[in-house]
Design a protein around this nucleic acid. Sequence first.
DNA 1: TGCTAATCTGCATCAATTGCTAACTAGCAG
DNA 2: CTGCTAGTTAGCAATTGATGCAGATTAGCA
Lengths: 136, 136
Amino acid sequence: MKSPTELTEAFRANGLKVTPQRQLLFRLMHGNTMHPTADALFSEASVQMPGISLRTVYQTLTDLASMGELRLIDVGAGAVRFDPNVDDHHHVVCQTCGDVRDVYVADSQNLSIDGLDGFAVDSTSILFHGSCARCA
Amino acid sequence: MKSPTELTEAFRANGLKVTPQRQLLFRLMHGNTMHPTADALFSEASVQMPGISLRTVYQTLTDLASMGELRLIDVGAGAVRFDPNVDDHHHVVCQTCGDVRDVYVADSQNLSIDGLDGFAVDSTSILFHGSCARCA
DNA sequence: TGCTAATCTGCATCAATTGCTAACTAGCAG
DNA sequence: CTGCTAGTTAGCAATTGATGCAGATTAGCA
Ligand SMILES: [Mn+2]
Ligand SMILES: [Mn+2]
Ligand SMILES: [Zn+2]
Ligand SMILES: [Zn+2]
């Protein structure tokens, strides 16, 4: 994800306005490695800006995602996670505490795959399920 | 997934009863490659057994899953899919029509992975997103 | 044939997300 | 610096997928 300053530019360039709510979310997401849910972000944002709406959090995250600044991660349980890391990477989720961490997989393109005939693949997501060090 | 006859045995062995509703669902799921949702199965089941409850469909599918006879597949949009194929395999989903097909990935254990330190991995799911032949 | 624990149905509830709209405001034109 | 207006926000309703619950029903055994 771009920096808050760069996002300010990018939003205005797209005819979108830069509001205090959006700037706050730019800051909360920038460099965030927690893979937070919309609701978790809403809680954090509410500390600095009481009265901000959960709806606005969803809205802004969706905007950022459609601009390619965020990725949506579905770990198969509960709410979707938002990820400012748009590099090619994958995830591991702890099935006990729900923590999500980045995983980098080399040669994920060179897998020997059977069953993709007729399919044009756009993207691949690899999700590891397990137990983190703390929950071991 | 075991055959309807074998499941009848297995259910009784576990102290579970074998009802007409369950038998119907055993039959509908056996060899089913559609990766149906609970609701899709409910529709199919309702044809042969009007009045069957969606709640019963969920219940039975959950029972089968916890007996290891079914796998739950989350394709990241809409409802969970149920899969009688419990072999080690993965999936490709058409982002247009939602169709899900089996994919077999060789050497998925031998991936060169960075970021799993401290994590004990139980399972890995690989999901390919794309466009099927019909929706191309 | 009768008993009883398990099951089924139907409805309430829940969690996550999206739809809607009146009030508000960023950002530009004058 | 003002006023306008398209875009945004807050708050609440609605939707979707799934689970909780309880009274009526039934499989399976004595
Ligand atoms: Mn990530
Ligand atoms: Mn499958
Ligand atoms: Zn953990
Ligand atoms: Zn398709």
